[in-house]
């Protein structure tokens, strides 16, 4: 008999859905039909490859808390995460009194009350201060010189009034270039001291500002760390609850299976 294995029978044989007698018959026919045998082998290979495609665990949970609402919570899950992050940021910003201000074209970020700004002085700002100090000194010096000149003129007048013999018997006044030079050196030293003091004060202010900023930043990081720890702890707790719930559900399912198996046995 020239029997050919048809498509349906070949499929039923391939997936082991034939009775014993039919199976034997197909096997006998396959021995006589190398073409069908080769095709069967090809199908087995394809099945082997298809078997490499494993099931995937769904990446996102499908939650249907209240089916009446027909709410597609799954779609909201990623947005809930974003919303929670935004809320957390706002809360953190509120707690730390976060500020973002714009000044002179610069974006300034900071925490707490805006303190009066103590700006670092640059060269252009320092120069007028030095000029002012020098002008003041010059005025004082000028006043003193004027006083000296007046005194000198008075002296000359006195001298003129004094008889010549008396005038030449007295020693000459001690106003000379050397004294004036010493006086100027003294002023220069005083100016330098003032400048040094000014720079020192400026450096001190900047150092204090930096220390304050570092202290505040450290405090901010510490608070952030504590908040993160709390979040992690809450996450673990939620995970634990979830696992417990799944455990109880699995136990219930197993109990159902055991009950079903027992009832089948009896």
């Amino acid at each position: 008999m020239n029997y050919k294995v048809d498509e349906s029978t070949l499929m039923a044989y391939l997936y082991n859905e034939l009775g014993a007698a039919e199976r034997e018959e197909v096997e006998r026919q396959l021995l006589e039909d190398p073409q069908a045998q080769a095709q069967l082998e090809e199908f087995v290979k394809v099945r082997t490859l298809l078997g490499k495609l494993e099931d995937e665990e769904p990446a996102t949970p499908l939650i249907m808390n209240s089916p009446q609402e027909k709410t597609i919570i799954r779609r909201l899950v990623p947005w809930l995460g974003v919303a929670a992050s935004v809320c957390l940021l706002l809360l953190a910003g509120y707690a730390t009194d976060f500020r973002a201000t714009s000044q002179n074209g610069q974006l300034i970020l900071g925490f707490g009350e805006a303190e009066p700004k103590i700006e670092a002085l640059d060269q252009e700002q320092v120069m007028p201060l030095i000029d002012q100090a020098l002008t003041r000194q010059r005025e004082q010096y000028s006043q003193q010189l004027t006083g000296l000149q007046t005194a000198l003129e008075n002296k000359i007048v006195d001298n003129k009034a004094t008889p010549t013999e008396v005038r030449y018997t007295q020693p000459a006044p001690a106003l000379d270039e050397q004294a004036l030079q010493a006086y100027l050196v003294g002023y220069q030293q005083q100016n330098m001291q003032q400048m040094a003091q000014l720079l020192q004060t400026n450096t001190q202010i900047q150092r204090e500002e930096l220390q304050t900023f570092l202290a505040e930043y450290h405090q901010f990081l510490e608070e952030r760390r504590l908040q993160d720890l709390q979040l992690i702890e809450a996450g673990f707790q939620a995970m634990q609850d979830n696992v417990n719930q799944q455990k109880s559900e699995t136990e219930e399912i197993l109990a159902n299976i055991i009950t079903s198996v027992n009832s089948t046995n009896y």
Binding site: E7, S8, M11, A12, K45, V46, L50, K52
Partner: peptide, 29 residues
């Protein structure tokens, strides 16, 4: 029978595609 027929032609089509793409290499098995 229609199901089996679709299965037969589905597997045949897959075999051709996998062969064309050289997926029948031993390394994958």
């Amino acid at each position: 029978n229609t199901v089996k027929s679709r299965m037969y032609y589905g597997l045949s089509a897959l075999r051709k595609i996998l062969e064309t793409r050289n997926i029948t290499k031993e390394v994958y098995y």
